[in-house]
Design a protein around this nucleic acid. Sequence first.
DNA 1: CGGGTTTGACCAGCGC
DNA 2: GCGCTGGTCAAACCCG
Length: 266
Amino acid sequence: MEKALLQTNPQFIDLNSKPMHETSNDELIQELSRMKWENKKLNELLTVVCRNYHDFAKKDCAEELFASRKRKSDQLENSGHIFHSCCGECSPGRPREIKSNTSRVHVRIDPSDTSLIVKDGYQWRKYGQKVTRDNPSPRAYYKCSHSPTCPVKKKVQRSAGDASLLVAIYEGQHNHRPSSGEVPATPLRSPVGQQPAANIDPAICRRIENEESEIDQQVLVEQMASSLTRNHSFTAALVAAITGRILDDGSEENDDSFSISRVLSE
DNA sequence: CGGGTTTGACCAGCGC
DNA sequence: GCGCTGGTCAAACCCG
């Protein structure tokens, strides 16, 4: 990366090649300029990554969305608002609204594990199981059994597109504390209205796109990297994009989205 | 024996 | 009205 930057931008000097005390003010200014240039390029890359990830997430969530045509009245609580249950941005022709206190949890499991169990610290009683039309794997229905007055239900089903991904939909809010000391297995938890799987908070992307603070961006980059590295395919896409960026930088200065778009589309 | 799971039956919303 | 579908019920069963 460093060498590539130096190669593609010969106006920048390599301060690592000489002791710091021998560095002149002009060279320091040039180094500062180089760092700003790198930061700008990284920011551009992250913006492209965010943009492509949104497209990627929309496509992914659209495929695995539970296409329920039933219980319309159950899902139509906040009349007047139309939002996509996954990304919260789309507004397809058909209204698709969900209870405001509903959340989705994605849990990565062993593909060979056929159990529909999501450990979240609460005690659940299974009251039904059903094979749905849009997914060959059965959907399990659970009620919170810790308290008879607790209204919370959850539905657990494998993702249609990824057998190693369990999707749990929680409805309602617990009126008690978790019943056990188990560590909640909710690494990918997200309220409905945000992206599923390898959740990267849209707020993080927005902040990366909008804010100027370099320190803040560094923290955000770390958060983003943490989120993205949970998804192997996206990690691979990111690596390919960066590699492509380095290789293409000289000839395709303005085609930021080319590499990652190509990878994501494959 | 109590609590949880399984599974077929039943109910209700929706499109045609 | 009918068929399809998702959600729920409840009897039978299992297990510690």
